[in-house]
């Protein structure tokens, strides 16, 4: 039990450092990278909380969060690049 708390504390420290980078920037891609790493850390933290609360159901949420984190990063990158989410990447600039 103690080391679960210690591991969660380590996760919190890492999340704090990563969120500093997300705020500091300086470029847009630094921020996206930081938010992506923050998402990975969140997945681990949710799993860890499931063990601390002794509710393994939390892992379903962690799995879902992992999927969402990936899709979210790709969606943000696509939006930054093409200024649109609906357009296909292949026909860049052809249709609106």
């Amino acid at each position: 039990m103690t080391y679960l708390v210690a591991a969660s504390a380590a996760l919190f420290v890492a999340m704090l450092l990563v969120i500093i980078r997300a705020f500091a920037g300086p470029t847009l891609y630094d921020r996206i990278l930081a938010v992506n790493s923050f998402g990975t850390l969140t997945v681990i933290l949710i799993g860890m909380l499931g063990y601390l609360a002794e509710r393994p159901d939390f892992l379903d949420i962690a799995l879902l969060y992992a999927l969402f984190n990936f899709v979210g990063t790709i969606a943000v990158l696509k939006f930054v690049r093409y200024r649109s989410l609906g357009r296909s990447a292949a026909g860049s600039g052809a249709e609106g």
Partner: peptide, 12 residues
């Protein structure tokens, strides 16, 4: 945990 903290430190 150590690797996570070192990696996050590297981010900063």
């Amino acid at each position: 945990g150590l690797v996570l903290i070192v990696g996050a430190l590297g981010m900063v």
